[in-house]
Amino acid sequence: MKILVATGQTQGKRTNDYNWCVEGELVFIEPACARGERDPDTQCGCGRAFSGLNSHRGTTTARVAELRGFTEAEYTEALRSSLAEQGYQAGLAPEMAESLLDLVSLWPAGTVVERRLDEIRPRDVFARSRPPD
């Protein structure tokens, strides 16, 4: 199964990159705060972040990873558990898992992606389509 994991790969390509997650930990896409929703490049950074399920920290880069033997039910439970620990609505985990699995199905394993609010793309696409920071 392909899923998103935290990665330090390509960190520094943007001047406002950060990676406070554990390398390889599962990540999800947490909603941005009001400030981050207006501009993903704010100091807060939540509008450009992926959030670690275990560390509860953020990173601006995630990698599509192939986890053999990991099931959708296990993935959903990992999301549910993390959401509950963080005070979010854990009942959203099945829908979130389905959405994230659909998203990563677009790219081959090893693809590094970044986020700009609701848009998640391979990092090299942004580099070609947007001016550098």
Rank of each mutant, 00 (worst) to 15 (best):
W107I: 02
E30T: 10
K13Q: 05
A84E: 10
L4S: 00
G45I: 08
P132G: 12
L92F: 08
A127Q: 12
G45K: 14
F70T: 06
Q89C: 02
W20D: 14
G69C: 13
T76K: 06
A65N: 10
K2I: 11
M96D: 07
A49G: 08
G52A: 15
D39N: 06
G69F: 01
L103N: 01
E30I: 11
K13E: 04
V64M: 01
G8S: 03
R57E: 15
R35K: 14
I120P: 03
D124I: 04
V27M: 13
D41Q: 12
L101W: 02
V5S: 05
M1T: 07
A84M: 04
Q89T: 08
Y88L: 07
L26W: 13
T71H: 02
A6S: 05
Q11P: 01
V104P: 03
R35A: 15
F28V: 08
A73E: 15
P108L: 02
C21S: 08
S51P: 06
R38F: 13
D124S: 05
P132T: 13
V5M: 03
A73Y: 04
G110C: 01
Y18L: 07
P131S: 10
T61D: 11
R48C: 03
R116N: 07
Q89I: 12
A65H: 09
V104H: 03
T42Q: 09
R68E: 06
P131I: 09
Y75W: 07
A65V: 08
H56W: 14
R128E: 10
E114V: 02
E37K: 12
P40E: 14
Y18G: 00
A93P: 02
M96T: 09
Y88F: 12
R68W: 13
S99M: 11
S105A: 10
S99D: 05
G12A: 12
M1Y: 05
E98Q: 09
Q11W: 14
R121Q: 13
L100S: 03
Q43W: 14
P131T: 13
T10I: 00
D133M: 11
R115N: 03
G58A: 11
M1E: 05
E66F: 03
S99L: 14
A93R: 01
Q9N: 06
A62P: 01
E37N: 15
F126S: 08
